[in-house]
């Protein structure tokens, strides 16, 4: 079953009088349960495509579908509603809220989705166990290593049972061991829960985890 699809999407950024075509007409589909890598050199459009798939941005042309719904022209709040609970994100930087503990960071999307306190507690504890952070539950990001922070970010992305998790260079700021640990966890969770993962990377050690590889070059699928 299709989770997301793009049809002939283009994305043009205009800075001053200079136009840059980040995506030049891409069409592809991501099926449920995939563990897919978007690969390509810097500037190939990986991040831009992830942002369109994640309803963070809107295409200049073409259409983006998430769970069958055309999200290309949704307004700001409609896109926020679409992201909430449906799409999880893991960013290159360890994107945790610095004033919240690991537990509270993971709980945040559940709060936004209005889960009951019991549901939240059970889900957060389950995820903390899954990413091996149970003993770090009440630590704030500045009290955690980079690897621990990124594992917490993965747990947060998965918290509301999303249809898809989009990860942009999730291991770029980690050493090899921590990078592998994060990828192992993502692989395991993909296999155990069936949640779809799409991650952008140009690291060959990460690409090997993917069951499907989509290569981008100069804004098109190579």
């Amino acid at each position: 079953m299709e989770v997301t699809r793009v049809e002939n999407v283009t994305r043009v950024f205009t800075i001053g009088k200079v136009e840059t075509q980040a995506l030049r007409g891409i069409s592809l589909s991501i099926e449920e349960g995939e563990f897919t890598a978007l690969v390509g050199p810097s500037g190939s459009g990986k991040t831009t495509l992830l942002q369109l798939l994640g309803c963070l941005d809107q295409p200049t042309g073409g259409q983006v579908f998430v769970k069958g719904q055309d999200v290309s022209r949704l307004n700001r709040n409609q896109r926020a509603d679409m992201r909430r609970g449906t799409i999880g994100f893991v960013f290159q930087f360890f994107a945790l809220i610095p004033t919240l503990t690991a537990y509270e960071n993971i709980e945040m999307p559940l709060l936004l989705n209005k889960h009951t306190p019991t549901e939240r507690r059970d889900r957060v504890m389950q995820l903390l166990e899954a990413v091996d952070l149970a003993d770090r539950a009440h630590h704030r990001p500045d009290q955690m290593s980079g690897g621990e922070q990124q594992r917490a970010a993965v747990a947060r992305a998965l918290a509301p049972h999303p249809a898809i998790v989009l990860a942009d260079e999730p291991t770029a700021n980690l050493d090899t061991a921590n990078g592998e640990q994060v990828m192992d966890i993502m692989t395991r969770l993909n296999q155990e829960t069936g949640v779809t993962f799409v991650f952008a990377t140009h690291d060959p050690r990460v690409i090997k985890y993917a069951r499907r590889v989509i290569t981008l070059r100069d804004g098109i699928v190579a």
């Binding site: 926020a80 509603d81 992201r83 994100f89 930087f93």
Partner: peptide, 16 residues
């Protein structure tokens, strides 16, 4: 700014 972006990515609406 970046934290606001993270919250927004999680689906937090402008009103919130």
């Amino acid at each position: 700014t970046r934290e606001i972006g993270i919250l927004s990515a999680m689906g937090m609406r402008g009103g919130r």
